[in-house]
Amino acid sequence: MSAIEFKKLTKSYGKSRGIIDVNFKVEEGDIFGFIGPNGAGKSTAIRTLLGLIHPTSGSATIFGKSCIEHPQVKKDVGYLPSEVFYYDHMRVIDLLNYSASFYKKDCKKRIRELAEIMDLDLKKKIDDLSFGNRKKVGIVQGLLHDPKLIILDEPTSGLDPLMQQKFFELIRDENKKGATIFFSSHILGEVQRMCNRVALIKEGRIIKLEKMSDLRENNYKRIRIETPAAIDRSFFEMPGVSKLELKDHMVNFLFRGDINTVIRKISQTNIANLLIEEPDLEEIFLHYYEKEGETV
């Protein structure tokens, strides 16, 4: 059974676009990235999944069940919203105990452990906390009941790099213990570091669904060449080359296709230095976006 399944999910808000025909699965034990720019529909998809809003058509299920019809399925779900708001006039520990009271298990020990890892002062009033510290409360609150599915909506905003590091370690540990992670972000680096599989969403539609490794290895190479003398742009204009940039004696492009053809091409000229590397996700992603843009 899949941990999460979106089946032809569409949600429209009156005239404005929500999400359209979203179709994909997240298998148990996976770390799944859900990437797209702000406003692409990531949060809409997650909120439909959690039963905060109703689908216009299609369905979104957790462990095969809809959250609206089977609210009990939510006992295995931990959720960290993108913006964390809590009841005012409560201390951190009161809020966490209130949260724990909804689950039929003793979470006291886990609360202490998590608070220690995240370096969170349980005695403070929530009103007095900074944005980053509220986010920490959100993290502890989302994990305190040892959920089997952890849904994170833009989890790292507001956390300093050191805390992000700790947070990712924590999430990896949860994954090793068997939890499925569903992770939405517009920061590609963090998805790249964490996820096995990704779905790319743009303007409400899923445009790509791939294994992280496939996405990166999809024959794309970032090639940088330094030449002793200036070289004509047309020399590198060949099938498979994109984003060609020439600056002083530097040539920079993305290549997709048979690597031998580009190596032969390079060997026809005199070069000072050559660097062939994996493109980062951001580049591939932008590339997808541009391609989409051309077809529209």
Partner: peptide, 13 residues
């Protein structure tokens, strides 16, 4: 008060 997300993801209808 924007606490819906907190409450509605709890296992209750």
């Amino acid at each position: 008060d924007k606490t819906t997300e907190f409450l509605i993801v709890k296992p209750l209808s």
